[in-house]
């Protein structure tokens, strides 16, 4: 069976309030740390004067060569863990260091704007603040 599509979410949109467990997401961030023992990595990004972190469960994408400080893109399902809260169980974790984040964001927004317009502007909850 095919998995569900990984819809782009900005890292600052990933919180348990708005997204249900099991949702497939695609997001990005700088690799801040990687703990091979726990198969866990943390992607961080800076937005609106706040540091946002996305915890990534890397068991499906191992072994991988972590490059600390590089931009990564992750695709996977959201899961709720005890203690740590929300994390993404990655199916794809690609290093995309050198990506132009501003253009990427505008491309994501452009795509959302198109779908919002087409679906009659009902889907506003995904619009970034």
């Amino acid at each position: 069976m095919l998995p569900s599509p990984g819809v782009f979410h900005f890292p600052w949109e990933i919180s348990s309030d708005t997204i249900q467990e099991g949702t497939t997401v695609r997001t990005f961030g700088r690799l801040k740390c990687y703990q091979p023992a726990d198969s866990q990595a943390v992607l961080s990004s800076h937005y609106a004067a706040t540091q946002h972190q996305v915890v990534v469960h890397t068991v499906f994408v191992e072994p991988f060569q972590p490059i600390l400080g590089a931009q990564y893109i992750v695709l996977g399902e959201l899961e709720i863990t005890e203690g740590d809260g929300l994390r993404v169980r990655a199916r794809v974790l690609n290093c995309v260091d050198g990506v132009d984040l501003t253009i990427l964001q505008s491309a994501i927004n452009e795509q959302r704007r198109y779908f919002n317009h087409r679906e009659g502007g009902t889907d506003i909850q995904q619009q970034p603040p």
């Binding site: 050198g98 990506v99 132009d100 990427l104 491309a107 795509q111 198109y114």
Partner: peptide
Amino acid sequence: DPVLAVQISWMLEVPQLYRKFYD
């Protein structure tokens, strides 16, 4: 596509195609 350039340009282009032609 190491820096997503192809994917980003695709994402920017497709909505235009929709607005101008497919829709």
